[in-house]
Amino acid sequence: MSEMLTISIDGKECTCKKGEYLYDVAKRNGIFIPTFCRSDAFEDHRACCRICIVEVEEGGRTKVVTSCVYPVERECSVQTRSEKIMEERSVVMALLVHRAPEAPSFKNMVGRMGATETDRLVTLDGEKCILCGLCVQACNALGTGAISTVNRGTEKKIDTPYGKGSDACVGCLSCANVCPTGAIEYSETDTTRTIWNRDFELVRCEECGQVMGTQNSVVFAAADEVVPTMCDSCRKKHLADEMMATYRYV
């Protein structure tokens, strides 16, 4: 069994496994730390937005760490809202809003904790992406690998190869759903979804008519199994009805 530790977060005593990430311990104990580039869907984290910084005091020394990837190795005392942290977070927030002024999730966050005023930063008009790479991680985890970071430095962005519709993409929206800033654009009509420069045909449940996803994503998710024609809940209902019919007279 792994070693257990007791640490204090904002004065509250919390027990955790050695090596557990600070953010997870805080969350379990009802202590809110803001995050953007972290998703519970993955075990390894991007650790690039820096909004989750906290102050850790360990053996008489204090340091600022990113809680989403800071493993608790020994007893410590953590401050998630000290004056220093609030100030530094508001600098981080300023960097983020200049990078992605159009990100809807930032508006609320700036309201909550402010963003340092400065005229030293250039604002990227119209930008929403903070280049956290969660979308790429999601696409790779799925096994599609249709998007990646392209270029470097100030030119860096997320895109498909050559900015063209990609054969690897199945139009599943995993990237758009995981994005913390709503940066990935797509549109839908009754029959078609358009994302990453490509049109995908939508399939609907033959029973209730709900959208089940794109044709490509449904086939992809089915792998070698039979491609379903009904949505999950209709399928379950059918199965139950069938069972009823079969076992009624037993």
Binding site: T144, G145, A146, I147, T149, R152, P161, A168
Partner: peptide, 13 residues
Amino acid sequence: GCPQAQLYSMATF
């Protein structure tokens, strides 16, 4: 056996 996107990322980096 790797995604094109991964090579494209390298080629532009």
